[in-house]
Simulated assay, not measured.
Amino acid sequence: MLRPGNPEMIAPDRFDHLVLTVADIDRTVAFYSDALGMEAETRNGRTALKFGRQKINLHQRGHEFEPRALRPTPGSGDFCLIATTPLADVVAHLQDRGVAVELGPVDREGALGPMQSVYVRDPDTNLVEIAVYG
């Protein structure tokens, strides 16, 4: 049995990727590229959105890759992205692109402590939190 402090314990460091099931990959790529500055990459028929040292793999609804989530559903995602851009600039950028801020700026508690966040919805209505520490 693995226990904290045990040298055999698994020690996760960070996410490498997460998967979103989407209704329309092209529409999703356009949103995340334009609104959030991610870079689209397609390899072996699979599309991903890259940023920093992570990526979001996209699965087309009804054509998911195996193995997959038990109930892959567009709009079921809820995740937080950390930005290095000041939050006021993030909000202005989103507004310039016609992306509605659903909530924020608001104070939140992240993995590394206090942060300020705004919340938006992507084309599938996934909840995307964009946060800045400090």
Rank of each mutant, 00 (worst) to 15 (best):
36 L>W: 14
87 L>R: 05
18 L>N: 06
129 E>I: 03
90 V>P: 07
87 L>F: 02
76 S>K: 02
93 H>I: 01
56 I>R: 02
104 G>Q: 07
22 V>N: 02
8 E>K: 10
126 N>P: 00
4 P>H: 12
47 T>I: 01
72 P>T: 13
38 M>K: 08
95 Q>W: 01
131 A>H: 01
86 P>I: 01
79 F>T: 03
40 A>V: 09
60 Q>F: 00
63 H>I: 02
102 E>P: 00
32 Y>N: 09
15 F>E: 01
70 L>Q: 09
11 A>F: 08
23 A>C: 06
13 D>E: 12
133 Y>M: 11
40 A>S: 15
34 D>K: 15
93 H>M: 07
98 G>I: 04
54 Q>K: 06
121 R>N: 10
70 L>V: 15
11 A>R: 15
78 D>C: 13
82 I>K: 11
68 R>D: 00
99 V>M: 09
86 P>A: 02
3 R>F: 10
78 D>I: 04
16 D>T: 12
109 E>L: 13
36 L>I: 15
30 A>Y: 04
58 L>D: 08
87 L>Q: 05
87 L>D: 06
59 H>Y: 15
100 A>V: 14
129 E>V: 03
127 L>P: 00
132 V>Y: 03
132 V>R: 11
2 L>H: 14
9 M>Q: 14
35 A>M: 12
64 E>S: 11
90 V>L: 08
87 L>W: 03
52 G>R: 07
119 Y>V: 14
28 T>K: 09
110 G>H: 06
118 V>M: 09
18 L>Y: 05
30 A>E: 15
24 D>L: 12
112 L>D: 11
6 N>C: 11
99 V>H: 05
106 V>W: 03
113 G>E: 03
114 P>F: 00
124 D>R: 02
68 R>L: 06
9 M>N: 05
27 R>W: 00
5 G>K: 03
134 G>M: 03
98 G>K: 12
43 R>V: 05
89 D>T: 08
94 L>M: 06
64 E>T: 15
131 A>S: 15
20 L>G: 13
69 A>W: 02
68 R>M: 11
7 P>A: 07
81 L>M: 14
69 A>Q: 14
3 R>N: 11
129 E>K: 01
66 E>A: 12
93 H>D: 12
101 V>A: 11
28 T>L: 06
23 A>G: 15
64 E>F: 04
117 S>A: 15
123 P>A: 08
79 F>V: 02
48 A>T: 10
21 T>D: 04
21 T>P: 04
91 V>C: 07
109 E>S: 11
55 K>G: 00
63 H>G: 00
78 D>L: 05
83 A>F: 09
85 T>S: 09
47 T>W: 06
68 R>E: 04
21 T>A: 01
3 R>W: 07
71 R>W: 02
45 G>W: 04
31 F>S: 12
58 L>S: 06
29 V>F: 05
44 N>G: 12
29 V>A: 10
24 D>A: 14
29 V>Y: 04
74 P>Y: 05
47 T>L: 01
96 D>P: 01
115 M>K: 07
14 R>G: 07
13 D>F: 02
94 L>C: 09
114 P>Q: 02
126 N>F: 00
53 R>L: 06
20 L>D: 08
74 P>E: 10
131 A>P: 03
90 V>D: 04
65 F>K: 10
67 P>G: 13
129 E>H: 02
50 K>N: 07
51 F>H: 03
